[in-house]
Amino acid sequence: MHRVSLSLRLTRTQDASIQRHAEAHGITRYQAAIRVMEAGLATIMASSTPTSSDGADVAAAIGELVVRAAVLERLIDRTLYTSAAAYTFARQAALSGAHDPAKLDQALSEAAGEAYRRQRDLARGER
């Protein structure tokens, strides 16, 4: 590997920081200065990767996230309704033995709707 010798001028504060780093890691001041330069160069090189100037890829990613969030919201909403309906069916079966199926379906549908709205409002922080 070919090496190039450089001479740098540091402020006293920078020199003191390098000296503290060297002492903390048990290395020479020269080795600490090299590590500091290498770490700085690596940081500069990593942050200088070109990004798109028009932001189209960022906009596309945000659009995809919005679509996914909408799908998840519908799925969670449906899951909440289903669990509220299951709860009311189980509760109704445990508490009463109604013999009119139409009345039972209507009462359970209303109870499920109420349970759903109550849980949705709680999730939104509206209650």
Rank of each mutant, 00 (worst) to 15 (best):
L95Y: 02
L8S: 02
A69E: 14
A61L: 13
A111G: 12
G125W: 08
I44C: 10
A107I: 09
A84P: 03
G40P: 03
A115K: 06
S47M: 04
S109W: 07
R68F: 05
S5A: 12
L108I: 15
T79R: 09
G26L: 01
E64I: 03
R127N: 08
G55C: 06
T13R: 14
G40D: 01
F89W: 10
A70Q: 07
A39H: 13
R127F: 09
R20S: 10
D100S: 08
D77W: 04
V58I: 14
A90K: 10
G97R: 10
L80T: 09
S96D: 11
T43M: 13
S83V: 15
A70S: 12
M45K: 14
V66L: 06
A98T: 08
F89G: 02
F89L: 15
L10K: 07
R78F: 01
L10V: 14
G97D: 13
T82F: 04
R12P: 15
A93R: 12
R117Q: 13
D105F: 10
E73L: 02
M45F: 05
A69P: 00
R29A: 06
E114D: 14
A24L: 06
E64C: 05
Q31H: 13
V36F: 06
Q31A: 15
Y81T: 02
D15H: 13
A85G: 00
T11V: 07
E114H: 13
D15G: 04
D77T: 12
S5Q: 08
A24E: 11
L65W: 11
P50S: 12
R118K: 06
H21M: 07
V58D: 01
I27G: 03
I27M: 15
G97A: 15
R91G: 04
R74S: 11
T11E: 11
S17K: 08
Q119C: 10
L95K: 04
G125K: 14
H25E: 03
D77R: 13
T88C: 05
D15T: 03
R118V: 03
A16T: 12
